[in-house]
Amino acid sequence: MLMVSELKKYYKIESNIIKAVDGITYRFENGKFYAITGRSGSGKSTFLSLLGGLINADSGKIEFNGKEITGLNDNKLSEYRNKSIGIVFQNYCLEPTYTCIENVLLPTYPAGTGKAKRNEAAGKILEYVGMSERNNQQVKSLSGGEKQRIALARALINNPDIILADEPTGNLDSENGKIVMSLLRKIADDGKTVIMVTHNQEDALKADAVLRFVDGRIDGDYPND
């Protein structure tokens, strides 16, 4: 379970203060699929970065399974990012000169997973995302949808409890977008918490709940039927 309380993140641009995240309190249940929507600049991505420990909050708390994430040192935060969450970016953030399996295996090294175990896990995950036949192909030769599936496989390789996805279909055509969305749905159905930022209303409807962000606050929490 992931819980945020009175989370704040402000940015100062010249003399103006931008309230990217302004005192959000929310509780994310295990095994649910959440979609965060809102206009550009409403604080969705900043909120996701805070949840992923990529940036520090100005105030407030983030708790994961009862442990406070905010204020952790670099090593503990790295461990949290490595083992407890998986992050998927809009632009994939894959290393183009590596093969698919090399990209997928990257998070297993700091986790200290043994060679046999990590290779087995990588094989399974690539099969899970439907990319097992491309595992030795260089990422730069893949299509956008395939890249995003490799990014999903990389996010899943250490079997994290939470998947954070920042506009995962933003760079994809509708067909590939559907494939990625069905994968995210499947991941949530398999018991992981998925938190996805999206502009796409159609994608948002596939989530269990939609959080609408306005000016750094949650304007509404709408469960999808």
Binding site: L54, S78, Y80, C93, E95, P107, P110, N158
Partner: peptide
């Protein structure tokens, strides 16, 4: 930068 940022995002420490 994006490569090292990605490494950090997936759990690589400052030491690594």
């Amino acid at each position: 930068y994006s490569f090292y940022g990605m490494l950090k995002a997936i759990g690589y420490r400052k030491k690594h």
